[in-house]
Amino acid sequence: MITLKINGLNVSVEKGSTLLEAARFLGFPIPTLCHMDGLSPYGACRLCVVEIGEGPKAKLVSSCTYPAEEGLTVRTASERVLRARKMILELLLASCPQSKIIQDLASAHGIRRQRFKQEHEDCILCGLCVRMCEEQMMAKAIGFRGRGEKRSIGTPFDIKSDVCRLCGGCIYVCPACQLRCTYTEPEKAICGGCANLSPPCVDKEQFNDMMCYMSPCVACEIKKD
């Protein structure tokens, strides 16, 4: 066990856990967009910043990737942390102003007005879908492409990947998802229609052999009976 101090409380957490896990275990909320239990930590969204250390040596780190250390002092909601978090949210909101999840977070952090130019991107490059595809669905159908401002997530050559099973997991985890279900056109995009209870896909033959993220899906089960 490792003993550390979070927001003035002395706590013991298991070795190998991250600051995010430790703080959440104690009930200190830390917002994140790119963290999900069962997926490897990635540290892309930076929303989970916390302040560690004392005095002039104090610094901001992303809690989802920082392992708990013996004797560490952590502040999850200091003024500096909140200021940084607010800035990050403003920037995320500027790139994806239409995302409900980001809008809610921004609202909760008291952001009332947009200072930056809205980009209307459909992706914040958090990599959740990439990790979901690789680590949970064992497919590796989508990944990062390009570099810098041209970086994007997608399949190689923008054509349907051979290893994609149209499971819909990537849409399910996406915090900014703009990829809408194309229902009966499986070649074009992932269906995901079964996320609602009356999907139009269940009557279509091409979806019979699909391995779906929602499986067992209520709609599919009803159809089988």
Binding site: K140, A141, I142, G143, F144, R145, G146, R147, T155, S161
Partner: peptide
Amino acid sequence: SMVDVYGVATFY
């Protein structure tokens, strides 16, 4: 995997 090869090929 194809994704990784494509990622490297488009990165550089």
